[in-house]
């Protein structure tokens, strides 16, 4: 009973049946989780905007967009992995490795950007498959497996690059287009992020692939008994994550003008997990959506941007992000009426 009481007490007012049906429907469509993110985003935008009008300038909004594009890509991929009930900690290292390889392949083919990009994508796919194979056939817990490949991929990236930035892609028109170009006034980086996120969103929400990923995350036993080949899904999801991480790596190369083994990609995995968790993904799987993750990515991006604009000590930014995450997850848990016994799931 206390759980029900909790739920009722913490539910936002529109949940009550007395309100209009249309409001209820709109809420169902957007999702309660997303509404709270939108509210938080609105408050943040208002505060920053009133303090510094520069915030609302187009140039600044583009800055936020391009700043979140790379970590956003990884967060979207991470969302799928988490919905499946797993975790991929190695995305940052995969992006770093892909960044180095894209630049080195670009140099080796004497300036063929398409080949450089293709090599990086192929490598990302392989890295993802390695993760999947270790997890499926090695029977290794996903966290441990990708913790291992986090170190291993970073090591490989440093080995092949000797720890130095590789190649110079800053003069190539393709890479320039990726980093500084724009289509219809919107930077290419944002396009890449939005298109990839849209594709993943459609996959998760409107195809049987996505439905089965939710099923595996929710109850893998039931999914298996329903004839879903779980191993194939694990391999597929990790391969997709590898591919998206490689895409992020290519964007890092484009932005920095060279292949970066570590700088630019280190720590992205944690940012991705932060955004996914903030966006409402439950680490035990079966819950989460791309829309929530994108809102969380935006929220984090606006927070960082705003604090920089307002001249707040950058060290506080990390504190603010951490606080935001804890508050968001606590609110989620209270809403879900989780019993306060033992380790939370």
């Amino acid at each position: 009973m206390s759980q029900t009481a909790d739920r009722i007490a913490s539910s936002p007012a529109p949940d009550s049946p007395t309100r209009g049906l249309s409001l209820r429907r709109a809420l169902d469509f957007v999702g309660v989780q997303n509404v709270s993110l939108l509210i938080a985003l609105g408050i943040l935008v208002t505060i920053i905007g009133t303090q510094d009008p520069v915030f609302f300038q187009t140039a600044n909004i583009k800055t936020i967009g391009t700043a979140v594009a790379i970590s956003g890509l990884l967060a979207v991929a991470q969302t799928v992995v988490i919905v499946l009930g797993a975790l991929d900690i190695s995305v940052g290292s995969q992006a770093g490795l892909a960044s180095v390889v894209s630049a080195m392949a670009f140099t080796a083919t004497s300036g063929n950007a398409a080949l450089g990009i293709a090599a990086a994508l192929a490598l990302g796919l392989c890295c993802g498959l390695v993760n999947g194979v270790v997890i499926v056939f090695g029977r290794v817990n996903p966290v441990i497996a990708t913790l291992a490949t986090l170190a291993a991929f970073k090591g490989v990236a440093q080995l092949v690059s000797n720890g130095r930035a590789q190649g110079y892609t800053g003069a190539d028109p393709v890479f320039i287009f990726l980093s500084r170009g724009s289509i219809a006034g919107i930077p290419t980086l944002i396009w890449v992020f939005v298109l990839a996120a849209a594709a993943v969103h459609v996959m998760l929400k409107y195809t049987d692939l996505g439905r089965n990923i939710y099923a595996i995350g929710g109850n893998d036993n039931a999914a298996r008994l329903s004839g879903i080949n779980i191993n194939r899904y694990i391999l597929g999801v990790y391969a997709m994550t590898g591919l998206i991480a490689a895409l992020a790596g290519i964007l890092i190369t484009a932005r920095t003008g060279s292949g970066q083994p570590v700088s630019g990609s280190e720590g992205l995995e944690l940012e991705a997990i932060t955004a996914a968790a903030l966006g409402g993904c439950a680490l035990k799987g079966g819950k989460g959506a791309v829309s929530g993750t994108i809102l969380a990515v935006l929220l984090l991006g606006v927070l960082t941007n705003g604090m920089t604009l307002l001249g707040i000590n950058p060290f506080w930014q990390n504190v603010a992000k951490g606080t935001l995450l804890v508050v968001a997850v606590v609110i989620q848990q209270v809403r879900s009426g989780e019993r306060r016994v033992g380790l939370p799931t």
């Binding site: 459609v202 409107y206 195809t207 049987d208 439905r211 089965n212 939710y214 099923a215 995350g217 929710g218 109850n219 036993n221 039931a222 999914a223 008994l225 329903s226 004839g227 879903i228 079966g286 819950k287």
Partner: peptide, 27 residues
Amino acid sequence: QDLALCDNLDIVQNMFLGREKRSGLVL
């Protein structure tokens, strides 16, 4: 016996689990 249902899915989604009907590529 252990009810092979996914708690996080709704009734329709559970009933068609693993054998979803599609029109083209989408559900």
